[in-house]
Design a protein around this nucleic acid. Structure first.
Lengths: 207, 207
DNA sequence: CTCAGCATAGAACGATCTTTCTCTTTGATG
DNA sequence: CATCAAAGAGAAAGATCGTTCTATGCTGAG
């Protein structure tokens, strides 16, 4: 269903740049690869599959990405940017720390239920990249450090005791929600997650 | 460090059966493959690597396992048996439900800290097997269903309200502890895990 | 209009993947 | 001692992996 998309009209074959300067082929590659990597895993998805699904040739692929691993890192970069975007949106939406914390927890739940039904892209990637020094693992570490730090700031603004531990618990719970949603079904996880997360944040457990 | 072990004395080349009826070559294969799969991932570890590290030939491999996937399932079977063993040992050790719950939480923490430093074998395997109908994913599902059910029984014995949700939270927390221990380091996760787990179980949060 | 640059198509590289094969050697059992 | 199953060594199948290559066509900027 993904491999046989875009017969690609022969009419659009030139260096079409996209609005923000990137090339169209590059964006199609990145978007297609992101879907495939997330849905199926990284090592199982070969370059052939990616270029076929993106309607691009191997030569074009290697013009935009020096190697497959660079594409993997770009994929994680997209996921990272998405989550940062969600955080920013929530922070713009309210000034009240309590409301912000509730918004973030609900946003995470919403995201797990609707978009990330195959687990956490970073956890899944890390499962396939055991070398902690690899570029992929460094990207994972950077993302997680940012996420943890952001939560610490949010929890601190709540004025609760031991914000570091509480933020750590929220990190744990989001990981678990993503994993559990994938392997046990979101319906079996939702209640446990929201309850535990609100408690960890120091919010009134009621919804 | 693993690939160049056991030059294998030419003296032991026969159908040596092991104590419980299994063959020696089969056990060596399973043990070696388990280490490699857990430490590096499944798709990255080829049959060549496994047979070389186990000091066995491909022919012997395929005599014991119809395909590589059967070996993967056997590997998950070992992990499943290990965790069940831990549960059984704790249940033998005490009759008091409160003490049992504490023992299990500490046992999980101990296990994450010492043995499972590369995440959860089942979560990692699931990351590489997107097909929910595959044998691997079925093994994962079976293991998780057993784990969840066992926790529900333990929490029920505590007499706490809503044991299903509480057990669900404990499942979440163990997943998260395994993932977090791998990606963030156990030291950054331990306090958050033990605290949240004891609270979820309805135990006195103090250690 | 010309030309550099990007995208195309498609073949090909060597490496590695899983699986199967033949042939020999070993050890335990009758 | 003769027999047979299990394990040995090693070649080889056919597929797919990531990567590089040549040769051609289209486009927009100079």
């Amino acid at each position: 269903m993904l491999s046989d998309m875009a017969p690609r009209t022969t009419a659009s074959r030139a260096p079409r740049k996209t609005a923000d300067g990137g090339s169209e082929a590059r964006e199609r590659l990145l978007r297609t690869a992101s879907e495939l990597f997330y849905a199926e895993g990284i090592h199982v998805v070969g370059v052939d599959r990616i270029v076929a699904a993106a309607g691009v040739t191997r030569a074009t692929f290697y013009r935009h990405f020096p190697s497959k691993e660079d594409l993997v890192e770009a994929y994680l970069g997209v996921e990272d940017a998405n989550l940062r975007g969600m955080f920013d949106a929530a922070q713009v939406a309210t000034d009240d720390p309590v409301e912000l914390a509730g918004l973030l927890i609900d946003g995470i739940a919403e995201d797990v239920a609707r978009h990330h039904t195959r687990g956490c892209p970073f956890i899944n990637a890390a499962a396939e990249y055991p070398d902690a020094d690899s570029g992929v693992r460094r990207a994972v570490g950077k993302h997680r450090a940012w996420f943890r730090g952001s939560l610490e700031r949010v929890v601190s603004a709540l004025g609760s005791d031991d914000p570091v531990t509480r933020a750590g618990q929220l990190v744990l719970l989001r990981d678990a929600a993503l994993v559990g949603g994938y392997l046990d079904g979101w319906d079996n996880v939702r209640v446990a997650f929201v309850g535990a997360a609100r408690q960890a944040a120091g919010l009134d457990p009621a919804h």
